[in-house]
């Protein structure tokens, strides 16, 4: 047992490369969250509407996103769309897959938050003369984000963890991709992946902590 010499120095020498990858990881996660939130608001509104043409597609999106693996969704973007002659690069496929997933989960969160806001808020805003879109944007939406803040930050951590799936479709610029790249060259699997795990952990903690600070500043009243 343990007939193995750990070569930690080799892993630490690659630290700058890994940190570059961490930036790409963070970038993908932030982009996918921004687009996911925008789509999720639309989906949540669509699911609450009375028109079947709106609820149908929105429900399909949400249920597919929530009932299939994230990896499957990324495969669909990368390999599946190839059937139609659309060839996405690993970066775009990964981003599309995670955005699809984020939007599905966040839509449910936002829908729950919308339900918690009294309908009188909307009616009061409307009777003050606001058009529907303005009333939603200025009165309902801020309250919705406030209620959904904590689940949204959880989703952000999920998005960061999901970016690691890109390596399965050939992504080689994010943290997991670079780690795998170094791994296949040096065969120091344990050392390099342990270092990557520490970086992922620190990123996740930083996001959680940052969100908590933000919440205490934003929601003081």
């Amino acid at each position: 047992m343990f007939n193995y010499t750990f070569q930690w120095r080799q892993a630490f020498q690659k630290l700058p490369l890994l940190l570059d990858g961490a930036l790409v990881t963070l970038q993908i996660a932030l982009l996918s969250m921004a687009m996911g939130i925008a789509l999720a608001v639309l989906l949540a509104v669509a699911r609450n509407s009375k028109s079947r043409w709106a609820t149908g597609p929105a429900t399909v999106w949400v249920e597919v996103a929530r009932n299939t693996p994230a990896l499957f969704q990324i495969y669909m973007a990368h390999f599946g769309l190839g059937s139609f002659g659309i060839h996405l690069s690993p970066y775009v496929a990964l981003l599309a897959g995670i955005t699809f997933n984020n939007a599905g989960y966040l839509a449910e969160t936002f829908r729950g938050a919308l339900r918690a806001i009294p309908g009188t808020q909307m009616r009061a805003a409307r009777s003050l003369g606001m058009p529907p879109v303005q009333a939603f944007r200025l009165v309902v939406m801020p309250q919705m984000f406030r209620i959904a803040f904590l689940p949204t930050t959880n989703q952000m951590v999920w998005a960061i963890l999901m970016t690691s799936l890109g390596v399965t479709v050939g992504m080689n610029t994010d943290l997991a991709g670079i780690t795998q790249d170094i791994n296949v060259r040096s065969f120091r699997t344990f050392e390099i992946f342990a270092l990557a795990a520490v970086i992922y952990y620190l990123i996740a903690k930083a996001v959680t902590l940052g969100a908590r600070l933000m919440a205490s500043r934003l929601f003081r009243y």
């Binding site: 047992m1 970016t163 997991a176 344990f190 992946f193 992922y200 996740a204 903690k205």
Partner: peptide, 23 residues
Amino acid sequence: DVFRSVPLLIQLVLANAFQSIAG
């Protein structure tokens, strides 16, 4: 908390590498 903050893929690779290191 570590198990929830590190991607599952990384955990799988690490565990697999560890079990072969430990023989």
